[in-house]
Design a protein around this nucleic acid. Structure first.
Length: 470
RNA sequence: GGCGGCAUAGCCAAAUGGUAAGGCAGAGGCCUGCAAAGCCUUGUAUUCCCGGUUCAAGUCCGGGUGCCGCCUCCA
């Protein structure tokens, strides 16, 4: 069955076929590096991670580009307020961003171009637009003239005349320069507030507008037409709409074939906001002792086009689910007997999982397939009806599905320290002597140290308790 | 004011118009010295409310209610 994606452009699920067979070129809108990213940002990055991983799982060669916006109003404001030079400020937050990606097990894109490294490309693109009559100048800034691009609004399904100037409250219309508030800046003339953040170019002294970087970098690195472009739903308008206008007006070619947008994250049923006190950066949660993989689970387990309700109850549930998977892996690793090689069960699981993901990344249905497999296989393990090869195959299956979801890894640190092992042995001795009081005391001691003992027919098994809330 | 989306059990969350997956939590049981893990059983689910279409509606249509996103630089 074909892979299908919901394309914002057509508002329908479409069969996916890349321009070049076997190769997918995708551009995923990245962070503005003026602050630590919050978990809402990471919902988008994890959705994009799932997308690239599933495409790879399906055999595509993936080239993913994610931009780093290191010059933009908020960056400049942060520099002005802190007095820190732009270079060092953005460098710090870029480093933090990559740390966060690692924390959540997000695979690296092929390239992370920074906007400031592509100023010449942006200038060239703006010059092309100027030559083609799509721009006008106003007080040294260069704007895109929307009425030269009649297709404007095709992605967000907005009609220009329906847009209400300033309705978002973000623009002070009295101070707004262009001929129409809907025209957007390609190049912004230098103002004193910009400090030392400017470029001397053929377009004058100033800096690029926000939207132009994505057009310039994506077309430079992926070609004038490419397969997939993603972002959060808020990027649909105006950012992506403007990218389409800039790119297609400049090249005359279709810019992007599949536009995928993910819905926002809510926290405890409300929109995440500082004033509601439910605003969380990844770092906050990790510092508070939450398991990063449980965070990944919560962020990934809801279909990307559904609003995802992040809650601490859900985080706890995700932690338990991870524990269940790790226990399952441990049981498989201990299988020694003979019996079923699980061939049919594994095929059924992987088929169900794969077709769920093929269907617009329906990860919830995919997880259900995995849990069904886990339950059925656990039953067989209880009955001692699985071969060693079958258990090894099941572990290999989990590894394959892990490559898509990043959720099915084994326990990170299975090495049991000698002193813990010693206590386990002592406890076992006490149990053999029917000295259960002592055995239980040792067990409590182990639990306090973060280790859980399970008595099995093959003897005691010790595992580390998963990280959880402190 | 305009455009778009969502509402499924205590929580999280799936479901080509064909009779409501899965996870977590809770309850009972098997197993266990006791646990843990695992398994079994367990949720009358009025699928937000009111109408309608249909042999059949969580799903389609209309009207409410609530929430979310966008309307110039927020994933």
């Amino acid at each position: 069955m074909a892979i299908r994606f919901y394309n914002t452009l057509t508002r329908a699920k479409e069969d996916f076929a890349p321009l070049a067979p076997g190769e997918v070129r995708m551009y995923t809108c990245g962070p503005t590096v003026y602050n630590f990213a919050h978990i809402g940002n990471f919902r988008a990055y994890i959705f994009e991670d799932l997308l690239r991983r599933h495409l790879k799982y399906r055999g595509f060669k993936v080239t993913q580009i994610m931009n780093l916006t290191d010059v933009e109003d908020k960056v400049i404001r942060a520099c002005r307020e802190t007095g820190e030079p732009r270079e060092s400020l953005t460098k710090r937050y870029i480093a933090a961003f990559f740390e966060d990606l690692d924390t959540l097990g997000i695979e690296r894109a092929e390239q992370y171009p920074a906007a400031t490294d592509y100023v010449p490309e942006m200038v060239a693109l703006i010059k092309t637009l100027r030559e083609r009559g799509h721009t006008y100048e106003h007080r040294g800034s260069i704007y895109f003239k929307l009425d030269t691009f009649p297709q404007y609004g095709r992605l967000s399904h907005f009609r220009i005349e329906d847009l209400k100037d300033g309705a978002s409250g973000r623009v002070d219309l009295d101070e707004y320069d262009p001929e129409s508030a809907k025209d957007f800046a390609l190049w912004k003339a230098y103002v004193p507030e910009d400090g030392d953040i400017y470029w001397e170019t053929e377009l004058g002294k100033g800096r690029p507008g926000w939207h132009i970087e994505c057009s310039a970098m994506s077309m430079k690195l992926l070609g004038e037409s490419f397969d997939i472009h993603t972002g959060g739903e808020d990027n649909m308008f105006p950012h992506h709409e403007n990218e389409i206008a800039q790119s297609e007006a400049a090249t005359g070619k279709p810019f992007v074939r599949y536009w995928l947008h993910c819905r926002h994250l809510m926290v405890e049923g409300r929109k995440m906001s500082k004033s509601l006190g439910n605003f969380h950066t990844l770092r906050d949660l990790v510092e508070r002792g939450y398991n990063p993989m449980a965070i990944r689970w919560v962020l990934i387990a809801t279909h990307y086009r559904q609003p995802n309700n992040f809650s601490f109850d859900a985080l706890e549930a995700a932690n338990e689910s991870l524990q269940r998977i790790q226990d399952f892996r441990r049981r498989l690793a201990d299988v020694r007997g003979s019996g079923s090689d699980l061939r049919e069960e594994m095929a059924a699981c992987e088929t169900a999982f794969g077709s769920a993901l093929d269907d617009d990344l329906n990860v919830s249905a995919g997880l259900a397939a995995v849990f069904n497999f886990i339950r059925d296989t656990n039953k067989l393990i209880d009955e001692d009806a699985i071969s060693k090869a079958g258990a090894a195959g099941a572990l290999a299956l989990l590894d394959r599905l892990h490559s898509v979801t990043g959720l099915f890894a084994g326990a990170k640190d299975d090495a049991v320290p000698d002193e813990i092992q010693q206590l386990v042995l002592e406890r076992q001795k006490a149990r053999r002597a029917k000295n259960f009081a002592q055995a239980d005391a040792i067990r409590e001691h182990l639990t306090a140290a973060g280790w859980i003992v399970e008595d099995t027919p093959d003897g005691p098994r010790v595992k580390r308790a998963l990280e959880r809330v402190i």
